[in-house]
Every structure is written in C-alpha cells, then in structure tokens.
C-alpha cells in the first residue's frame, strides 16, 4: 500500500488520482492501439494523473512519460488491470525502475492467461449457447452475449484494486499457488464435453434429403417403399454428417496447418458441390 506521505517534495497522490487513473485505464486503454507499441500510449495516458503528482520536476516528468511510451501489450481486461494497479502503487512511491520490469515481466504471461480464459474457455461456450438461442428466434441470445462482455468490464475494477493493494506480491500468490492451473483444467474438461454436445445440436439441420426405393413383396403384392437415407443413418450413427464436416475442418487445420480462411473456402466449395449433386 503506498504511503501518501513519503515525501513532502513530491505531490501527494490522492485516492481521487488513483480512481481517475483506474477509470482511464478501464475505459480507454486500447483506444490508440497501434502496431508499433500497441497499448503503450493508453497506458501512459492512464498513468498521467499519478505521474503529474509524483514528478513535480518537469524533466523528471518527461523521463517518466518516455518510460511509459515503451512497448506494452497484454490481455486488456484480465491481464492489464492487476499490472496497472500494481504499477500505480509503485509509481506513487517513485519506484519507476520496478515499474518497468514489472510491466515487461508480466505482460506476456498475463496475456496468455487472460486470452485463454476469455477466448478459448469462456467466450466459445457462451457464444454457442447464445447462438443456439438466437437461431431459435430469441433475442435473449444477443442479450446474453452483451452481458458476458459487461461482466469482464465490471471485473476490471476488483482486479485493478487487487494489483494496487498487494503490489507485486499478488503475482506469486496467483501464479505460484497452482490455483490458475486447477481452474483452467476444470474449465477445459467442461468445455470439451459441452462441445461434444454442441456439434450435433447446432448442426442438426445438416441432413441429406436423399432416399432410395425398395420393392418388397407384401402379401403376394409387389409394393415400392421409400426409405429415407437420413432415417437409416440416424439409427446407426446420428449426426454423422456434422461429425464428418467438423472432423474434416479439424483435420485440415491440424494436419496441414491451414488458416481459418482457407478452411472456410474449402467448406464453401464443399457446400456448393454437395448441394449441386443433391446430397444436401
């Protein structure tokens, strides 16, 4: 916890300054995101309320601003708030060198953790569920998606204060304790199993209209029966076509390292061929 009375020479950082920095970071961190230094300018602008107070000497302030204009990029919602919180605490104590190493050291691992939680574990599950609701004609699906985004935004506040209050210590606690690993494994198994159910449920309309005729002897009379291919398949292997298409797409990516756009093009071609020959 930063002591606000460390030095009488430098201005004191108030709770209001900290709050102002937090809101700037929460709302605008990525507004000036660019290829060269990514989130750097947003980080500097968010830190300005603190820097202004701490560095009363103009040249010190300029040096501090230049430090924060160095490359910075991490997961903005789960990764950056604790890093930013911790560095706000450190900057308030004029510990600029520690700030730089903390940023550089944590942005990589936190990007990995945050992107995995959001992009691989949570978003796909919510998205499939929301999309299935929307396909059934319900706007609840869209609302669910929006609410999920809102949850991440709100979480940024406690994550910031976690970093601010514990300084650097929280990092060992979170990363070292194995807690993240356990949560990740639970979420992964959950995700894998739900996806197993989602594939046949979402792609349930991928059915073949093909049927074949069979002549049978019924009480001495020859009658023609029409047998639907899909009905026959469903008795043996339900959702065979969805499984085959997903397996094909998976295999193309895994085996040939094809990009999503290439796989997309292949699927489009496949869709046109199969619809032209009447399979679907």
């Amino acid at each position: 916890m930063p002591n606000s009375e460390t030095s009488s020479l430098s201005g004191t950082v108030t709770k209001r300054d900290v709050r102002s920095a937090m809101w700037r970071h929460l709302i605008t961190l990525q507004w000036s995101w660019n290829y060269e230094r990514m989130q750097a300018l947003g980080y500097l602008w968010s830190m300005l309320p603190i820097l202004k107070k701490v560095y009363t000497d103009r040249n010190d302030l300029i040096q501090a601003m230049k430090r924060h204009l160095q490359f910075y990029n991490t997961n903005p919602q789960i990764g950056s708030p604790p890093i930013f919180g911790a560095t706000v605490a450190l900057e308030s104590e004029k510990l600029g060198d520690a700030v730089d190493s903390l940023k550089v050291g944590l942005m990589g691992p936190f990007a990995g953790i945050g992107d995995t939680i959001q992009g691989v574990l949570i978003r796909p599950m919510i998205a499939v569920f929301a999309a299935s609701l929307a396909l059934a004609g319900s706007w609840i699906g869209s609302a669910l998606m929006f609410l999920m985004g809102l949850v991440w935004c709100i979480l940024m506040v406690p994550l910031f204060y976690l970093g601010y209050r514990r300084g650097i210590g929280f990092v060992d606690e979170v990363v070292g304790g194995g807690l993240i690993d356990r949560i990740t494994e639970i979420a992964t198994i959950f995700g894998v199993m739900v996806v197993g159910g989602f594939v046949p449920s979402i792609m349930t309309n991928l059915k073949t209209p093909l049927s074949f005729h069979k002549t049978v002897e019924l009480a001495g009379k020859a009658t023609t029966k029409t047998i639907s291919l899909q009905d026959t398949l469903d008795k043996i292997f339900p959702s065979l076509f969805p499984v085959l298409v997903v397996a094909l797409a998976y295999w193309l990516m895994k085996r040939f390292k094809l990009s999503p756009v290439w796989v997309l093009l292949i699927l489009v071609v496949l869709a046109f061929i199969t619809s032209a020959i009447g399979l679907f």
Partner: peptide, 13 residues
C-alpha cells in the same frame, strides 16, 4: 448449405 456447414469452422478452431 454453406450456412449449415460453417459452424464446423468454429468448432474445428
């Protein structure tokens, strides 16, 4: 049919 098949892309990814 493309619309029916495209979820496979998301699942595969």
């Amino acid at each position: 049919v493309t619309g029916l098949m495209l979820p496979a892309l998301g699942f595969a990814l």
